[in-house]
Simulated scan of single mutants.
Amino acid sequence: MPEMVTCLWFDGAAEEAARRYVELFPNSSVDAVVRSPADNPSTPEGAVLTVEFTLDGRRFLGLNGGPAFTPNEAVSIQVHTTDQAETDHYWDGLIAGGGAESQCGWLKDPWGFSWQVVPKRLSELMADPDADRARAAMQSMMTMQRIDVAGLERAVAAASPSSSSSSQ
């Protein structure tokens, strides 16, 4: 099977971004920095053209391609977290230095790339076989920016048959 590498297009900040990401994610590294051997439309000779980096075992390439293309929400990187502390770690690290919070676990990092920081518990609750509990999880998530696992749990508990009275 061929190796697949995700390429992220930057306007001159590929190395800075790669180094920030590598600091944030465990088992990560900057693997290669390639400088442009000649002037080109996006990069002068000698400036960083590409940065190869690995984030927790997944390979990426940062390309300093210039201002022609900018990231948007059509493509995002999902980070599945185990608990609230891990969710907070990635959320805070990814928005630090100029990123922006969005809705439902989405954010933009300082370079405009969209990330989804998703606690595994959210996925579990939204797949609950009890439709009322799954709906409560979804409705609660829709009110959040950063996902709050305790808030989700409270919403689902309130929707449980044992904790709510039936209106008949």
Rank of each mutant, 00 (worst) to 15 (best):
A131V: 05
R58A: 14
D31L: 06
G97D: 04
R20A: 14
A47G: 08
E16S: 14
A155T: 05
Q78G: 13
P119W: 07
A13T: 12
K108V: 01
G105K: 09
E52D: 13
C104A: 11
G99K: 12
V5Q: 11
T81W: 04
W111M: 05
V75R: 07
S140W: 05
Y90K: 03
V48N: 04
M138I: 03
A158F: 05
M142A: 12
Q78S: 15
F10H: 13
A18I: 00
M142N: 07
E124N: 04
P37D: 11
M138W: 02
D56R: 02
F10M: 09
H80D: 13
T43E: 02
G66T: 01
R20D: 14
A38E: 14
R58T: 14
A38S: 13
M144L: 08
W106C: 06
V118T: 15
G99M: 11
D11E: 07
G112R: 03
S114K: 02
L152C: 06
A155G: 12
D132N: 14
L152P: 09
D130T: 03
R146S: 03
A134R: 02
R20V: 01
D83A: 07
A96K: 14
D92E: 15
L49D: 01
T70I: 10
Q145D: 15
P41R: 10
A100H: 11
S123L: 15
R135C: 00
E16W: 00
M4W: 12
A159H: 14
G66H: 07
V149C: 07
V51T: 02
G105D: 06
C104Y: 12
A85F: 00
Q103I: 15
W91P: 11
S114F: 13
F60R: 04
D128W: 09
L125N: 00
G112H: 05
M126W: 04
L152F: 10
W9K: 03
E23Q: 14
A38G: 02
S165K: 03
G112K: 05
D39E: 08
R19Y: 09
S36R: 00
Q145K: 15
M4N: 09
Q139C: 12
Q168K: 06
R19P: 08
Q84N: 11
A85L: 04
G105H: 08
L122K: 03
F10Y: 15
I147G: 06
L107D: 03
A134L: 07
P41W: 12
T54L: 04
R35P: 00
V156P: 05
T50C: 05
G62K: 03
L94N: 08
E153Q: 15
A150H: 09
I147V: 15
A136F: 01
A85W: 00
D31C: 00
D109W: 07
Q116D: 05
V79R: 06
A85H: 06
P37T: 07
M4Q: 10
E86R: 07
S102H: 15
T87A: 09
E124F: 06
F53Q: 08
R135N: 08
G151M: 06
D11R: 02
N40E: 12
E124K: 11
D39N: 12
N64K: 13
P44Y: 04
Q78D: 08
G151S: 05
V79Q: 08
E101Y: 09
S162R: 11
R121Y: 10
N40R: 12
V118W: 10
N72I: 00
D130I: 03
P26F: 04
G62Y: 06
L94M: 12
P67G: 09
